[in-house]
């Protein structure tokens, strides 16, 4: 198990480096989708640590993504010139920016994780949603971050290699954590908090840790996003963006990393497919808006999935039935 994940990580990094060499020959539209897939894998896998493995239902992952996106973009814009314009200089700067973005998001995760200690289930979901709105609100009022106008002008440093190497790193960290004695604390917190405490597990520490690690990678994903799109706007990190990520985790099966990765890929391609469908001449005009608005489909998917298959499409241990 241990060796396998290490090899997997190595293969993924090498493959992304190799593909990265041919990136120039990929059609820009597909390239865009590929990068989005990588970013969504990071987001969904990291949220899965919180929602799936630790059982703390967070609805504010886009808030952490925003913290990372703005944190890294701000660093790039303010200090981008410091290390010069050589390849080594810009790469170092980019890595610094991503790390900073991740750390700022982790700090935000700490701020959310601490109140989460006293809350469960629905309450926690609403509070994380509230935090998402608060982070958005702060950015909307922060002049140095472009406030309502958005923030642009970062260099396009995100490429295929960075995106997928970091996606592989996220998967590696999450898998290594949950498949260790140390990390079994996360699963214990999810399954039964009281029993976990009785077995000597500091549930507080694990919950906060899940939020901090999850937020860190969401922040890194935000940094990648900011340095790919080269323009970010507070509305791009709203509640609906959080829902996007939650749907990936639920569809993939909470607590199943492989399933969640599959779902992230599927749900990145699906809206594109639907958009293409909306332009097909044979489609009745009345159905075009449904194809263009993925949320109608997503919401139905959520409802039907919860009623018929709450453990998600791709299995996983699923949600626990609990007596009243």
């Amino acid at each position: 198990m241990i060796e396998r994940t290490k090899i997997l990580l190595l293969v993924a990094v090498l493959a992304s480096a190799a593909i990265s060499l041919f990136a120039g020959q990929i059609n820009p539209y597909y390239y865009d989708i590929l990068i989005s897939i990588g970013i969504n894998i990071i987001l969904a896998t990291s949220l899965n640590l919180v929602n799936g493995y630790t059982g703390q239902f967070s609805l504010g992952h886009a808030g952490f993504m925003a913290a990372g996106a703005y944190g890294s973009a701000w660093l790039s814009l303010a200090f981008g010139y410091v290390l010069g314009t050589s390849a080594a200089g810009t790469t170092t700067m980019f890595v610094l920016a991503l790390t900073t973005g991740g750390l700022i998001a982790a700090l935000a995760g700490l701020a959310v994780g601490i109140p989460s200690l006293r809350l469960r289930g629905d309450y926690l979901a609403i509070v994380t949603l509230g935090f998402n709105e608060i982070i958005k609100g702060v950015i909307q009022n922060a002049e140095p971050l472009g406030a309502q106008r958005g923030l642009g002008g970062m260099g396009q440093h995100t490429n295929f290699f960075w995106t997928f190497a970091l996606a592989a790193l996220t998967v590696y960290v999450v898998l290594n954590l949950v498949h260790s004695t140390y990390g079994s604390g996360f699963l214990a917190v999810r399954d039964d908090e009281i029993a976990a405490e009785a077995m000597g597990i500091n549930t507080t520490k694990y919950k906060v840790l899940a939020f901090v690690i999850g937020a860190f990678f969401a922040g890194v994903a935000g940094g990648l996003y900011a340095h790919f799109k080269q323009f970010i706007h507070p509305e791009g990190f709203n509640f609906l963006r959080s829902v996007d990520i939650v749907v990936m985790v639920i569809l993939g099966g909470m607590g199943s990393t492989a399933g969640v990765i599959l779902a992230a890929i599927l749900l990145t391609i699906l809206p594109e497919g639907l958009r293409a469908l909306a332009h097909q001449p044979w489609l009745p005009d009345s159905l075009r808006p449904i194809a263009e608005n993925r949320m109608i489909l997503y919401s139905l998917l959520l409802i039907i999935l919860m009623i018929t298959r709450p453990q998600g499409l791709f299995g996983g241990p699923g949600l626990k039935r609990r007596k009243a």
Partner: peptide
């Protein structure tokens, strides 16, 4: 009779 989280997601 499902977990509250399932109902919340619904």
């Amino acid at each position: 009779d499902r977990p509250r989280l399932t109902v919340l997601i619904t």
